[in-house]
Amino acid sequence: MTSRVLRRGGWNAVGIVLFVVMVFPVFWMISTAFKTDDQINSLTPTWFSATPTLRHFGDAIHTPFFWTDVKNSLIIGSSSSRSR
């Protein structure tokens, strides 16, 4: 029974390592979005910003063509369905 528990623990560890490696780019995208420019360009990476900012979201949305682009993507996306 103990060896079974140990084996399950081993596979769980493999699963968690796989999860961390696979998800890291997704996490990095999210974490970067909330960092200040200084934190992004720093030589020592910041994992979670202590001073999260929404400025980048504001910048992204407040371009004159943002909603046109959203509309275009929605039209194309809803008229075709591709998995990749």
Partner: peptide, 30 residues
Amino acid sequence: MRVSGSVRILVTSGLVLVWAMPQVVAVQVW
């Protein structure tokens, strides 16, 4: 089947997140 239910859900949802990432976004983050 060999891992606990919670780890299975964790890994599966992680994979779906990666799957949902558009190619251009993925390249940029990499």
